[in-house]
Design a protein around this nucleic acid. Structure first.
Lengths: 372, 372
DNA sequence: CCTCATCATGGTAGCGCTACCACAAGATGT
DNA sequence: ACATCTTGTGGTAGCGCTACCATGATGAGG
């Protein structure tokens, strides 16, 4: 995917093994310039998408690039271009299924843009302040912060204060001082709740996420609003507090299922808690989805590795992280040119994924009757 | 962790912000040479551990390096020194909890050794042959192959045949033609089974992994041997086939729990299937661990994100992957010097992690009596 | 004493690219 | 008409390092 495809394999000059020892293949910018009948500089400009190149010239260069199957030498680029961009992916809570997607997105983009990506846990650091300080001192330019770190205003301020670039991925609310990529948590939760309502459910339980993460509140509000808009009242007993962990989801689910009348659907704020809910339901001899519908949020690996697979909200985590890397790269370039642009906030689309953990409410259980 | 610590922070020349605009910090090899009163070449030789440098000179250079806190510029190095080492982490089955650890290990080591790591899925490639071909053509030197790819002799041969370096991580059996890092699957399964027996169990069920992975067979054999060594007979009905997926684990667990008399413990070949077994047991109103003990293998995230947390075998995946990266780097260097060393096989230690999914066999259930 | 290897070191020439400045050609303002 | 800006382009000078050859020392062999 991030390979530069070699469509003209046999078009290579000498067909020598690989690599680029002296006197061998690997076209340079000069070769392209010769082919396109212009100067290396112009080629450089085209490659880097700078302005001030006539459309005609640009075409010629691109043509030459294609023909020679040219790809710029990374080492030379960073050597000439001053500093190599290094960014760190800092994380605190290794909720791995989420992190894995995260890493993939970041790594893919880093590979593409020739950025050096480092991964840094701040679990056993003496303090975030010293850690961040050392990292910036050590040459890290940008930081990518997944939840829950993305909500930690202290860390964010620390980074920007020290001259670093921080991008929050998936925070509940965009802070003014740094960039962020996120989804509309509120609306997503609203849509999911609405979806469950559309299935015919009325008593819909909700499990709140970790209260320290801003997104938790937004999801809760989305749920609340959808319920109210549908004219359904949200009893306190339908809402249970969780912590985003499987274990907390079990406790919350037990609490919700003990309510009489039982909810016919439970919407958990993440997939781990939804999975726990399914487990608890099964233990109570409730079938999912025929007796109870369970929906999650995030579409992590958990969602489709358990059974039944969960209806959930998919965040395009990979794309979001890739975007975060790109944003840092751009900001770093701008910053180097002396400008100081305002932080950018990008909203990504989410998607409601329907799987087999959802169904209409069980009729038998409630002695209701509807006409078929 | 992979930061080069700057112990003499205030020793920096000018204390300018960071980075290396003209006339600023970041000592170069020339600075070191000046400090050590010798030529840059000599410094280079010392840095790269080449011979033919007087001990005295070497000391001086190292002293200067320390004093200036010099670290060689990666970009310049690879530009001047020919090729940058690029290795790819190829994967087929995105079993994410496993992959995440995998990535972390590889990335950490890659950062440390200044190797460019790429991640490549071969899920939707037309064929592995063309993919590998293109990647080597594109300049990838080495490949890291996690399961199940590590068992695919075709891919391994493809890579070595094309002049690449392949390291299998966690294969069932080391192939002669390529390097491998692994654990003793057989012995690990043996130990786990032995452990369960020690808890007092006699009817111990086993869920086999995907039959296409060699490791599955080894784990099965380990189980078998431990049972036989303990004088327990392994009925065919105690062994069920799985596929390493949660879903397959459910099917297998249902089958095992339908046997009469029921097994008092189930050892699944990986954590996903163990988690599924827990779910099925719960649905059958069996408590884990008081009614039935469930153990997994791998110690992926799943193992401690569900409840009860699983007793399992921990593989040091991170260390193993890091080792794989190191091995490729070393082999690449050797290869460049013209030598052709035999493939190295490294065995890592595993660890039996005891958590809350294990207990002695339930007494009540079987109307047995033991003296307290 | 003079070869001819063998060290230990220095000098030079790039690796492939981009930052920076120069410059010609047209557009615009007065 | 001229100064002044904008736009497209080219030339040059390195970025920091290592490959390669050249150099002085030393010591062995004749």
């Amino acid at each position: 995917m991030h390979l530069i495809m070699d469509t003209t394999t046999q078009g290579r000059k000498q067909g020598r093994k690989r690599g680029s020892r002296r006197g061998n293949a690997a076209p340079t910018i000069a070769d392209v310039a010769r082919e396109a009948r212009c100067s290396p500089m112009t080629v450089s400009r085209v490659i880097n998408g700078e302005g001030n190149v006539r459309e005609e010239t640009r075409e010629q260069v691109l043509e030459a690039v294609r023909k020679l199957n040219y790809s710029p030498n990374r080492a030379a680029r960073s050597l000439a271009g001053g500093e190599q961009l290094r960014i760190a992916l800092m994380f605190d809570n290794p909720s791995s299924s989420y992190l894995s997607e995260f890493l993939m997105g970041a790594l893919e983009e880093a590979t593409r843009s020739d950025i050096h990506l480092e991964v840094q846990s701040c679990e056993n650091a003496p303090s975030n302040a010293t850690l961040v300080g050392k990292m910036i001192e050590g040459g890290i330019t940008g930081f990518i912060l997944p939840p829950p770190l993305c909500d930690d205003q202290g860390v964010l301020d620390l980074i920007t204060g020290a001259g670093g670039i921080a991008i929050a991925v998936g925070p509940g609310k965009a802070s003014g001082s740094n960039g962020a990529v996120m989804i509309d948590e509120y609306q997503a939760a609203y849509d999911m709740t609405r979806h469950i309502i559309t299935l015919g459910h009325e008593r819909i339980g909700f499990i709140i996420g970790n209260p320290e993460q801003v997104a938790s509140g937004r999801r809760l509000n989305g749920y609340r609003a959808a319920m109210e808009d549908a004219g359904l009242k949200v009893s306190d007993r339908l809402v249970a507090q969780g912590q985003f962990t499987y274990r907390s989801g079990m406790v919350a689910a037990e609490k919700l299922l003990a309510v009489d009348p039982q909810p016919t659907a439970i919407f958990a704020s993440n997939d781990d808690m939804a999975a726990a809910t399914v487990a608890v339901a099964h233990r109570c001899h409730l079938d999912v989805p025929s007796d109870i519908t369970v929906c999650g949020f995030d579409d992590t690996d958990m969602a489709n590795s358990i059974w039944p697979e969960l209806t959930t909200i998919r965040q395009p985590i990979r794309e979001m992280t890739a975007k975060a890397v790109k944003m840092i790269a751009k900001l770093a370039r701008t910053q180097r040119h002396g400008d100081k642009p305002g932080p950018e906030h990008v909203m990504f689309p989410y998607e409601l994924i329907r799987r087999s953990s959802e169904a209409g409410p069980s009729l038998a259980k409630f002695d209701r009757q509807v006409d078929t």
